[in-house]
Nucleic acid binder design. Structure first.
Lengths: 341, 341
DNA sequence: CATTTTTGTTTAAACGATTAAACAAATGAT
DNA sequence: ATCATTTGTTTAATCGTTTAAACAAAAATG
């Protein structure tokens, strides 16, 4: 079954391909004979013609495609973001090509190459550690892109992120306000700025409240052996002479592992330990003490990312750099019920 | 910043574009002067050349792209499937373009068109209700595709699905074996075959065990107002003179809504009501009575789908139709602990 | 009625790659 | 020395669009 091309329609109708193209694209509005135009349209429809986007893209240098790289599409946060971006892109007739970096720079690079080779008009990226060179290269090649969720403070780029410092600060402050005096934190051992901002926010809240920071209260876990290290970290925080009485988790994934473990070990929440975490997740609603969490404005982030990106694309990269830091929303639930009652 | 083309390299090196193409694609292996070849490669690298896939695709009629349509990428089941497919595709150097149908035929159609226009080499589809005409059209146009998760019994297509009948049967049998005598079910009000198979499996298990089926025990919920109807259904099942003592949920989404409601209403699981559901989800691990569930072989499904699809693509559609029904795995947990102890 | 303008359509180049076929020069065979 | 083969490279067509420019015929203008 051969695909129908403009040429096929042109032959059937007995006109040139140019005319067919003009008609089907509604160009040269007034100038075309209505009867002929209608005939062309009818024939195109009858023959089930569909534009060959590849050919069009080659000519117009436009693919109407957005490349998206996230950490892991199967993680609820990534998935939700992907969904928002997909919907936003669709509104402007853009299609999304995606890949999961798994936080691995090599994989990230590979996907990035694939997206560029496929001539994506622009990119929305959530870069892993050590992706600075690739980001710089994109800038140098003037490829339109927007960072989302993360950015590198050393490089001037467009980005949309959560105000992680503020969010962590507020969450920690909330724990303290509830009467918890030894809040610990479990966060990724990572050089990613957005993650260290979370740690910084946590520490700042301690300082502000004159709580002496102890290194043992800040547990760092490695993404590769996340489950094991998270469990160990929970142990480290809770099984000590002066155990943490609250924990802030650096992400929903960490929280998930931790809560499962805490559940299994029968620590009581919030009596033995209060919990709060980044990223809202349905899952925590089922826990007997639903988790207080920092809800990221995913919809806003995705919409903004697409808007910004399309703006850059449309204006051929001549757009002032825009860096957006959005506020999270602290959703308070059972897991941080006021202490000491 | 102009993108570098073969022509640019050819000019710099002082050869024809053809030669550059041959070298960079490792064609005409033996015949090319090693020195020249090396020079071309070096120049290409120095100029940061990247193949214009669009141009290549136009000529070769191959995009190395798989189109993927799922119900909703932000649903964990879809996301997990997407991830597996992405990884599998990547192994064969294919990239994935995706869209979420939201179970809406019009949206599905729109995405489908976009994917076809973009000349995806093949499609992996999870079609919504009423998508039969589109499927038939694909066949007629000889576009390679594989259905996943669902299929239409009236149309002979390649597909990979869960054996939903068997899975539902086994889950129901398990409930009965645990001593529950009035198992109900909440499933989608949908004409989708895979969903009705679930219902059929449930009913067959009742019959097999000589349990009289009562219509009130089978609650149907509408996807558009899922939360409300699910809650109502739970009510309908549990607040009656002879309430259901167990419930099988037709999906993780239904289960999620239901469990939240059950939790809120303080029904005890499994004492008041045992629960089992389709689709394994992390979330249910946090519930005080983790849910017994039917785990779909997502990895296998995704891998198989990609394998089958690439096989069809490579063999130009001259492949025998393959219809695969995979077994689910019943994972037994607290929510169906033996009754009556 | 000659000229200009408008209307309707076609011609042809271009996008950036691939690749069969042609070609020239070097090497080998007789 | 002549012809055949091998080696290395180029020519040119092609994929399916888009679109500026050219063109022809019809209508309007003076």
């Amino acid at each position: 079954m051969k695909r129908i091309s403009l040429k096929d329609i042109a032959e059937v109708v007995g006109v040139s391909t140019a005319l067919v193209s003009y008609v089907l694209n509604n160009k040269k509005e007034g100038r075309i004979n209505k009867v002929v135009a209608e005939k062309i349209r009818a024939t195109a429809h009858a023959m089930n013609y569909r534009t060959n986007q590849i050919a069009r893209s080659l000519k117009t240098n436009k693919t109407n495609t957005i490349g998206l790289i996230l950490a892991d599409i199967s993680n609820p946060f990534s998935a939700a973001l992907a969904r928002v971006i997909e919907d936003a892109a669709d509104k402007f007739n853009y299609t999304v090509i995606f890949g999961s970096s798994d936080e691995k720079p090599e994989k990230y690079k590979k996907i990035l190459d694939a997206l560029i080779n496929r001539q994506a008009d622009g990119l929305i990226l959530s870069p892993p550690e050590h992706a600075e060179p690739q980001i710089a290269a994109l800038q140098q090649q003037q490829i339109p892109f927007v960072l989302i969720d993360r950015y590198f403070p050393g490089i001037e780029t467009n980005y949309i992120v959560l105000d992680n410092y503020k969010a962590a600060f507020e969450a920690t402050q909330h724990l303290i306000d509830c009467g918890y005096q030894r809040p610990g934190m479990i966060n990724y051992a990572s050089s990613l700025f957005h993650l260290s901002e979370r740690t910084r926010g946590y520490m700042a809240a301690l300082t502000k409240n004159k709580i002496v920071f102890k290194t043992e209260y800040l547990q760092q876990v490695n993404n590769i052996v996340l489950k094991e290290e998270t469990e160990q970290s929970v142990e480290n925080l809770l099984q000590r002479t002066s155990p943490a009485d609250a924990i802030l988790f650096g992400s929903n994934v960490i929280a998930m592992h931790a809560v499962k473990y805490i559940n299994q070990k029968k620590f009581m929440v919030p009596q033995n330990v209060a919990l709060a975490c980044f990223d809202e997740t349905d899952a925590f609603d089922l826990f007997y003490a639903p988790l207080t969490c920092i809800k990221q404005p995913i919809k806003e982030m995705g919409d903004l990312a697409v808007d910004m990106l399309l703006n850059i694309i449309d204006n051929n990269n001549n757009v002032k750099i825009k860096q957006v830091s959005l506020d999270g929303e602290l959703i308070i639930r059972q897991s941080t019920k006021t202490h000491g009652t």
